[in-house]
Every structure is written in C-alpha cells, then in structure tokens.
Design a protein around this nucleic acid. Structure first.
Length: 844
DNA sequence: CTAGGGTTAG
C-alpha cells in the first residue's frame, strides 16, 4: 500500500475546517445536523450507519470532526464489520476532500485493526501515515506496536523502536511500555529489560509487562523476583500484576511462594476480580493444592467459562478425569455453555478414562455446535478414539481433517502405538510430511516400550545426524533404553550429553538417570544423581531403592525407604514392590514382614498380587517354604502363575522336589505358554537326578512346541554392544574366544574348579554336558571381555536370564585368577565379583 | 493510549 503512495509530505497540521465550537462551524450545519453527543448514545453499527448517512446527506463529509467521530466510534466497536465500515468512511472522506486523513483518524483505525487482530492492516496504515508526512504522536506508537506484537512483525517493531527514539518519544512511558511488551512476546527479553532499565520513570504497567514477559518465557523465578523488587521500590501492584505473578508461581509449582505472593492481595486491600480468581485456582491446582482450588471455585459467584475451563483442564492434567467430567455435567445443567476449550478437556478426559460413551457424546456435542472446524478438537478426538481402541474411527477422523497438522500425525502415531501396532506407526512416521520433536520422541518411546532398545538408540543416532535437538523427553527414552542395555559407557556419555546440551534435568529425567545408572551396575553414580536432586517424588525414591535392591544392598534400600517416610513422601504401591524386592535379595525376613504389614495398617494400601509375590519370593528364598505356601493359600485373590513361579524357584534352590512339582503343575494349568516353567521344572528334576521326569517334561515341551528361551549375554566394548547366545559361534572373533575359554578352563581347573553339570538340562553324556556348560552365553561374553578390555577395567555383562550357579562359581574364580572385577546383571539383580567373592554372598 | 486467565500429540 505504502509503496504506491506519494511519499512527499503533505502538511496536515492545518485543519481543513475550524473546530465545531466556533461560530463559523455552527453556520455550516443545518438545523437537523446530528449533535456530536449523539455518538455517545450510539449502541450499534446500524444506528451509526444511519448517523453517518445523515452526515453525508447534509454535505458534512468535509467536516473532519464529524467523520473522525464516525471512524473512532466504529473502530471502537471492535468487529470486523464495524472496521470495514470505518475504513469505508475513511476512504470516502479522503476521496471527497482530495486529502489524507487526520492523525486522529489513523490512530482510531490502527487501534481498531490491532484490536480485532488485523495487525497487517494496522501496520500498513502506519506506513501510509508516515508516507504522507504526518508525524505520529504518543497515541500512535502503543497501537501500532501492539499490532506488531500480535503479528510477530519483528522488523517493523524494531523500526518503530528507532522511530520512537528519533521522534523523541523514548521517555514516553506508554510507548516504552509497549516496547517492553513487544520484546517480551518476541522472546527478546534482554532487549525488553534494557528498555525497562533505561526508562527515567516507570509505572505499574512497565513492571507488569516485564514480569509477564519473564513468566511467559519460562523464567518464572525472575518474574517473582521482579515482583518483590517492584514492591520494595514502592510501586503498588494492581490486579493485572497479580495475575501475571500468580501465573509465574503456578509455573514454579511452589505453593508457599504462591501464598506469600497472594498475601499482598489482602495487604493492599485489592478487590479480587474474576481473572485473579482464575489465576489463583490455576496456581493452586498446579501446586497440588487441589482442594483449596476447588474451594475457591465453589465459592466463586461468577462461574465464568474460562474459570470452568481452567479447573477442567487442570483436572485432566492431574489425571482426575472423573472430576473434570463432573464440572462439564454441572456446566450443562447450570451454564456457562461449554465451548471448544471445554470440549477439548472433556474429550481428553474421556480419552483418559477410555470411556467411549462419554467420548461419543462429546463428538456429538462438537458436531451439533459446529466446533469440529478446529484442528485441536479433531486431534483430541483421534487420541480419544485411539485410547478407546477404536482405531478405525480415529483413522476416519484423521482422513477427514482438511488441515492436517503435525499434531494430527503425532496423535495418529501415538494411537497406533497404544493399540500395539508399532509397525504401522513406523510406516506413518516415515510418510509424514514433517516431523517435530514430539514425533521423534513418540517413536523413541515406542521402541523403548517394545523392548527394542538397540533400535531406539539407532533412532537417537539418526536424530543426531538430522540435527533434531534432543529434549528432556528424548533423554528419558534414551536413558531408559540405555539402562536396559546395561551399557555403562553409553550411560556416562548420556549423562555428559545432558549436561553439555543444558537439557533441563527435572524430576522425571533425573529419576530416569538414577534408574539408568542402577541398571548399568553403577550404583555410586545412581546415588550421586539422586543425592543431587532438588526435589524427590515417590518415583525418584523408588528408583534409588531399586538401585540398592539391584546391587543387593537390602539394608541400604530399607534405610532409604525409611528416610523417604521421614521426609513425608507418601509411599505408593510401586515403592513397596521395590523395597520388598530388596528385602528378598538379602533375606531380610523380619523387616520384610514388618513393611508388608505396614502397607495396609499404616498407609491404607491394600497389598496387590505383586506384593504377595514379593513376600513369597522373600520367604521362599530364605528357605521358609511352608510359610510361603501358607501365605499363598491365605491370599485374598487367586494366585497367578508368577506367584507359583516364585515358589517354584525357591523349591529348586532348597531342593524340595515335591512342592516344586506341585507349583509347576499350577503354572502349567494357568499359563501353558510359559516356556521358562518347563525349563525350570526339568532343571529341578535334573538336579535331583530324576532323569525319567526330565525326559517327560522334555517330551511335553516338544509336543507343545515350547522352546527354551536362549540365554543371551551382551557386553559393551568401545561403545559397541556385542551379543552372545548359548552355543552360538557366529561371532567373528569366535576362534580367539574359544582359545581363551580353553585357557580359562585349564587355569580354573588347576585352581580346583569342577563344573556343576546339574544345571545342564539335556540328558547327554558328561563330556557333552561340560561342553554345553562351557559355552553358556555369559562365559562367552566373559572370555570376549578378557580379550578386548584393558586389565584395570571391570568386565560388565548383561544377561537376559538368571545366572546359573555354575557360571556364578566360574565368574567368582575368574575374578580371582585373572584379578578382574566382573559385573553381571541378570534379569533380577547385579552380581559384583571381586577376588573370588560375589556381592550377593551366593544368595540370589 | 500501554500490561492480564483456559487449548490437542510424546
């Protein structure tokens, strides 16, 4: 627009007509001329159009006072229609008078356009105004800057900053405040701060704008600090300030701080308006004070839509979907009428519950009220139908979306994964037009969840190659995969990577790191991360307790558990599993019973079947087989195959063949597909020398097509993970490994090692048994480790099954004869071998 | 004239 305009300055300072109050002006008006006050009583656009018509009819279009009134009144109505009309009136005025508008007209229009979000039009009008050589005034800058802010017109904003300085408005509080807001919304907070610092005088809006900027840029701490500084320096906060600072407290999730800030509301005798109630309810909910929030909500007379939406969305976020839907019910009965934001929460709530009825009802409401045009609603519905298991319905909605965003694709992928269709998810991932970090994180999470850890790490490497920035969520997935791989070098690299890239280490990520180090057999690092955490929730404690359990340090695990209770962290069912497992690894029968009983008696948590499983394991390992069986019989629920499996394992350790057979039969009844049972059962018979029974089990396995899960061990050397399976000789360095194994066997035999062939299931001759035994996967990995790692390095092996007792003795001796620390993680815990001893003291 | 609340996927 501006480019085609004549840039020569048109002096507009001379009015084309004198003010209305003068005699001259009065004469030009007919008797029926509408008085200017009639604009004040103008209620709608139609009325205004009539007034404008009268003015035109009376030939008053040259009178800028009238036309200015028309334009400004129109613009203030703030609708697209009214602005279009204002623009028309403006153009007509300019045509009839062969001149430009007045500054006041420009200001009115710019403000109006900015208000309805037509920022480009507002900026173009400014350009036009300057093009005509009209000098902007102090009213112009706030309007046009707010337009720049809304349309992210960065270059224009910067130019305006220049103009403000050039035209001598840099000491104008309003212009400067608008600049602070502009920079703040752009994320250029340093520039905003600079403007703020250089202001000769500031008012409450200057402070508030900067506080708001910090709060929005995820620097809530700075926002709150600035608030205190503001009060200290004697500027009284108003309700807007309070809304901003309370939202900062919500982000910090610090209830006490929030309450301290709120104290100013009462101290200053501030009236609490709806926006403040809303901010308060939001803050309390984000800080975990759900009851306080609900109370405030209930006491609020003005249940407006936003307030309802705030409480609903928070309920959904907290996983309280039922409560969210209760609010919706309330709204449907007594108002306010749910809008698309309410429905977004309602659809998410239905998704969370997997409640198809509610979901379908929401879908219907959306259609009846024509809310479906909004992307977010459709995306939420994809998620909802997927979570309700209605893949087809979800896909249908996806296909009907005309404007598919990356979120639509991500919802589809996540949904496919939830329905167990990882292959399709991978396919869609490959097809989608653009991928954002959520897409990558979703896939990474899926691979981790599906135990495809190496694939997950590979995907992470692809991310690196493609320059996708990893964030917290990425690293949680990566850390978790690494933990399962048990690759300590990789773990250390990940830890450094997070520090180097300044990835925010929140509770979840720190917890993932604790777990990762624990699974990689480095409990020291795990505890170091844990001790460095600022806040610890029950999951964090669970990870630390798990680290101790895996190390076999039951006493320390129980200690940690007690410390957690002391610090007032409420235990959940999961942490009890952790601590009871720790007890069972160390035979802490008394403490285990004590903790188990406290579950219900003190914490009101009814033990679930897993907790009984832990106890059966604890009693069984300790040799209290009768007590274990009694517990199983006293359980309030039917024992499952896992429970009997624990008992079976215990029977094997303590050589109770009869009870073992009983337990095994129960398992085969409950879960005939469980291959491990057959193997274990034959092992029991084998170790008792009952070869007829072994043959029977083997026959049964053959008939059912059950195959033993092959033992596999992996070892990380120079960042690469080498995997060995029992008896598989495909590794490229197999020759060296065989030679090494032979040498090891010789040296060990000289030291008095006798292979414990009771672990060999097959009924073959002694020599062959020895051969099979000497090729157990962990032995291959050990030999490989001895060849390929330096003397001072511990050898770390990860095994998928439980270590057999022969390999256990073997590793003990190797650790002594080769003077090497050996760390083996089996599917249950760690074994640290050193100088002929194992950390488990042979109790595992 | 400038500043303020609720919004889907991992």
């Amino acid at each position: 627009m501006a480019a085609t305009l004549n840039p020569s300055p048109v002096v507009f300072a001379t009015p084309t007509s004198t003010p209305l109050t003068t005699q001259h002006e009065a004469k030009t008006m007919s008797k029926d001329s509408p008085p200017l006050v009639s604009f004040k009583h103008c209620t709608g656009l139609d009325e205004l159009k009539q007034l404008h018509g009268q003015i035109l009819k009376q030939g008053l279009n040259h009178n800028h006072s009238y036309i200015s009134k028309v334009i400004s009144t129109c613009a203030q109505m703030g609708t697209v229609e009214s602005l279009t009309y204002a623009q028309k009136a403006f153009d007509l005025y300019k045509n009839d008078n062969e001149t430009n508008g007045t500054l006041f007209m420009y200001n009115s229009l710019i403000r109006g356009y900015s208000c309805i979000g037509f920022a480009v039009e507002a900026i173009l009008l400014y350009v036009e105004l300057v093009g005509f050589g009209i000098l902007p005034d102090k009213y112009t800058f706030p309007f046009v800057l707010s337009a720049c802010t809304k349309s992210s017109a960065y270059r224009e904003g910067i130019q305006l900053h220049g103009a403000i300085i050039k035209l001598g408005f840099e000491n104008d509080v309003f212009a400067e405040n608008s600049l602070i807001h502009f920079y703040g919304e752009r994320g250029e907070i340093v520039d905003g701060r600079k403007v703020f610092e250089e202001m000769p005088e500031r008012n409450v809006v200057s402070w508030t704008s900067l506080i708001c900027a910090y709060a929005r840029r995820d620097l809530p701490k700075e926002a709150v600090d600035l608030f205190f500084k503001m009060v200290e320096e004697g500027t009284k906060p108003n309700s807007v300030t309070m809304v901003c600072v309370i939202s900062a407290c919500a982000k910090l999730q610090e209830l006490e701080l929030g309450q301290r800030v709120c104290a100013y509301i009462g101290d200053l005798g501030m009236k609490v308006n709806t926006l403040m109630v809303n901010a308060l309810v939001d803050m309390y909910m984000k800080c975990g004070a759900v009851d306080t929030a609900k109370q405030l909500f209930d006491e609020c007379d003005d249940r407006n839509l936003v307030l309802c939406n705030t409480i609903m969305s928070n309920y959904v976020r907290l996983g309280l979907a039922r409560e969210a839907l209760a609010i919706l019910d309330e709204m449907l009965l007594h108002g306010p009428r749910p809008d698309r934001v309410s429905m977004l929460s309602a659809i998410s709530a239905s998704a969370q519950l997997g409640d198809l009825l509610w979901g379908k009802w929401c879908h219907g409401y959306v259609l009846r009220n024509r809310l479906e045009g909004w992307d977010a609603i459709c995306n939420a519905m994809i998620d909802m139908y997927m979570k309700c298991g209605k893949q087809e319905m979800a896909s249908r909605i996806f296909n009907h979306i005309s404007n598919k965003t990356v979120v639509s694709w991500n919802s589809l992928i996540a949904g496919l994964i939830k329905n167990g269709d990882v292959d399709s998810a991978r396919e869609v991932f490959g097809e989608m037009p653009e991928r954002d970090h959520v897409s990558w994180n979703t896939m990474l999470g899926a691979l981790t969840q599906e135990n495809m850890f190496e694939e997950a790490m590979e995907l992470f490497r692809v991310m690196q190659r493609e320059g996708i920035k990893a964030d917290r969520v990425t690293m949680v997935g990566v850390a978790s995969s690494c933990g399962y791989l048990g690759a300590l070098d990789l773990a250390k690299w990940i830890y450094i990577y997070i520090e180097k890239n300044k990835i925010l280490c929140d509770i979840q990520l720190a917890t993932a790191l604790v777990d990762m180090f624990a699974r990689c057999g480095d409990p020291q690092s795990a505890m170091q991360v844990f001790n460095g955490m600022e806040k610890r929730d029950v999951s964090a404690w669970t990870a630390a307790i798990g680290a101790m359990a895996m190390e076999g340090n039951g006493e320390r695990a129980v200690e940690l558990f007690n410390k957690m209770l002391q610090q007032g962290v409420k235990p959940d069912g999961i942490v009890f599993v952790g601590v009871l497992t720790a007890c069972s690894h160390n035979g802490l029968v008394e403490q285990g019973w004590h903790i188990f009983r406290s579950m219900k008696e003190i914490y009101g948590i009814s033990p679930q079947i897993v907790h009984y499983g832990c106890m059966v394991d604890l009693l069984g390992r300790a040799g209290l087989l009768g007590e274990a069986l009694d517990l199983i019989k006293s359980m309030p629920m039917e024992p499952n195959d896992v429970i009997w499996g624990s008992l079976l394992a215990a029977c094997r350790k303590h050589q109770n063949v009869d009870m073992a057979a009983y337990a095994a039969e129960r398992i085969i009844e409950l879960a005939p597909e469980k291959t491990g049972v057959h193997v274990l059962l034959s092992n029991i018979y084998a170790s008792a020398g009952k070869w007829t029974n072994v043959a029977k089990v083997r026959l049964h396995m053959k008939e059912k097509g059950v195959r033993k899960v092959p033992g596999s061990s992996s070892i990380e050397v120079n960042g690469k993970i080498h995997e060995f399976t029992s008896g598989n000789e495909s590794h490229p360095e197999m020759n060296d490994i065989s030679l090494m194994l032979h040498e090891m066997n010789c040296r060990l035999r000289d030291a008095g090692y006798i292979p414990d062939i009771t672990n060999v299931l097959l009924d073959v001759d002694e020599q062959e048994k020895e051969y099979l035994l000497s090729h157990h996967s962990e032995k291959l990995a050990l030999a490989f480790g001895l060849i390929n790692t330096s003397q001072r390095m511990p050898i770390r092996v990860v095994k998928n099954l439980r270590m057999c007792s022969d390999c256990h003795s073997f590793a003990k001796l190797v650790s002594k004869i080769y003077d090497r620390e050996i760390v083996v993680r089996d599917n249950n815990r760690f074994h640290f071998f050193k100088q002929g001893f194992c950390s488990c003291s042979d109790f595992w």
